[in-house]
Design a protein around this nucleic acid. Structure first.
Lengths: 122, 122
DNA sequence: CATTTTGGTATACTCTATGATACTGGTAAC
DNA sequence: GTTACCAGTATCATAGAGTATACCAAAATG
């Protein structure tokens, strides 16, 4: 790299890029893993009860669902409401804060469909 | 659940929802993990060479970068070009196929920034 | 000529995210 | 009175994601 190139690189605001990468890594940290986005998606699709969510996500186990729900509740991505009727009713709903993942999830669903097409036709 | 509710649920096209969840899971499978999205982001920001990418992503090791690049090349998310000049030049670029993650990444960066604000002010 | 840079590979290790399976206590349905 | 549903817990096991560190050969830099 010449001195000119070095100067150009420094001038292109690397600090900003570093911050963006860190923001990206933060998000990945919060919603990363196999299950969190599918759970949010399921909740957004109207599932509110434990077994309904479980049934709506192929492959998930009660253990993972339980853990993820707890963690996401702690991170204020969703809310757990208990109604103490004769059969106790437990319901999960996404918070506004979490709604903002809607767009990301939709994009990822689109991509996944395209990808399946591509795999199939190759 | 009453019979009416059951019927309503069946009518709401669960097959479609199942497919969407699977598409989502596929996408997560392809770009999941700690590093793939940051790598794509780095490439989109103009980094093309191994050490540049490495330096642009805080915390990544050469080993992980090497592995991830190979895997992503195999999945056709990016292309590796070798120019046999006197110092051999190796360059990585995203494929069109991969460009489509741009929007997702931008959304995630936005969310990460908001999240940091939220954490900071609480 | 000593050091640094480039583009990685090799080896050895940790550890955590996930999986499999079983179980519980209460209610309700058959 | 047995079977099934709800909302989970408990225990144990494991693959593979990720870390740490050292190393290589060739070229450029100072």
């Amino acid at each position: 790299m010449t001195k000119q190139e070095k100067a150009a690189q420094i001038l292109s605001d690397p600090r900003n890029q570093q911050e963006e990468i860190k923001a990206l890594q933060d998000t990945i940290y919060v919603i990363g893993g196999k299950w969190k986005l599918p759970i949010i998606n399921s909740l957004c699709n109207g599932n509110r009860r434990f077994r309904d969510i479980e049934r709506s996500i192929p492959g998930i186990t009660t253990r993972m669902l339980s853990r993820e729900l707890k963690e996401m509740e702690a991170n204020q991505l969703l809310k757990r409401t208990v109604t103490p009727n004769s059969p106790v009713l437990v319901e999960y709903t996404v918070t506004d804060y979490c709604q903002s993942f809607g767009d990301i999830i939709l994009e990822m669903i689109k991509w996944g469909k395209k990808h399946r097409e591509k795999i199939r036709t190759v």
